[in-house]
Design a protein around this nucleic acid. Sequence first.
DNA 1: TCCAAAATAGACCGATTGGTCTAATTCCTC
DNA 2: GAGGAATTAGACCAATCGGTCTATTTTGGA
Lengths: 183, 183
Amino acid sequence: MELSSREKLAWAAAKLFQERGYHGVGLSEVLKVTGLPKGSLYHHFPNGKSDLALEAAALAHREMTRIIEEAFQDAKTYQDGATTFLFKLAKLFEIMGKYTGCPVSEILFAGPDEDVFRQKSAEYFDAWISLIATQAERLGQPADLARAEAERLFVTLQGGWTLARARQDGDVIRNLRLLLFPT
Amino acid sequence: MELSSREKLAWAAAKLFQERGYHGVGLSEVLKVTGLPKGSLYHHFPNGKSDLALEAAALAHREMTRIIEEAFQDAKTYQDGATTFLFKLAKLFEIMGKYTGCPVSEILFAGPDEDVFRQKSAEYFDAWISLIATQAERLGQPADLARAEAERLFVTLQGGWTLARARQDGDVIRNLRLLLFPT
DNA sequence: TCCAAAATAGACCGATTGGTCTAATTCCTC
DNA sequence: GAGGAATTAGACCAATCGGTCTATTTTGGA
């Protein structure tokens, strides 16, 4: 499909930021990858790099939301859904190249110290956890446990991704299911 | 106590890198904080920023090793030790200011793409996990479970720290014990 | 077809980056 | 105290940073 210039920039930025973080990527690199001139970037993102980063993070957030929904959609049990989720993310981890970090935190934690960045990261994380909790409840988890299960999954995934990154091994993410659901 | 110039530089670098990551900190800032001139930096760290980062990461690694040992030293059970460990880190998180990331990953993941950086991160992480596993075994965990418990603690902590950072709340780390040891 | 708005194009800017190099100074040993 | 090594001091460098600005081209509705 044909992406608009704005979308091209946001996608390229998201990918690059995930690899080397906010400060590790220069605008020149984003422009080189997209083949667009600087004028376009500042036309679509008047506030420059910070605007671009916020849009890239929002993009990553929507993508993660989509993955969560897809993973739990056809699941028979919460455990099934969570496992599918882990496998989808392991695949994503491998596709991205084995050096990338969590989209949101790589972009938002290192960004300019404006408070917006940190607030967004909390907002996105909480949205993911709530979404998982909803799915957990739908799949029969007791209401008072669903939220705790969702937080456990999020926290385990976040930490597991980091370990996977260090070891350069997507299976670390797949094997998280053994930590979450001991047999 | 009086720190050598080399130590001053490494400590300052470790702190700054944890706040804003490898690329987010300029050498000028490290020099300003320490009050040392550029000549000193390149005398003690001939390869400049990357040398400094490796030393800062090594410093953080030794510090984490020390904290793990202290936490489990007087523990009666593995659960006690793990809880003490979480509380110590929550305290550390709060002392550092509520924006800092995992010492090692902030420094090593974003660093220059030389493979040394990534290798070191895997080495340090595995060392922590092994150390925890040893303590778990010493405190009566079955040998075949000790390693799994250690990985669970590491992964949970790593993810929990990220969530704590987003929410700016050290209690997130303290409450990880409820995820690890449901009552 | 025409015209205004949207978008692209890229030269240019000051500031800062990591890094080099030489001189001055401090420190330790004989 | 003399001499040599270790360290400090900071001027200087090319390259890159994020950002601004003006001109040109493309586009879409009247």
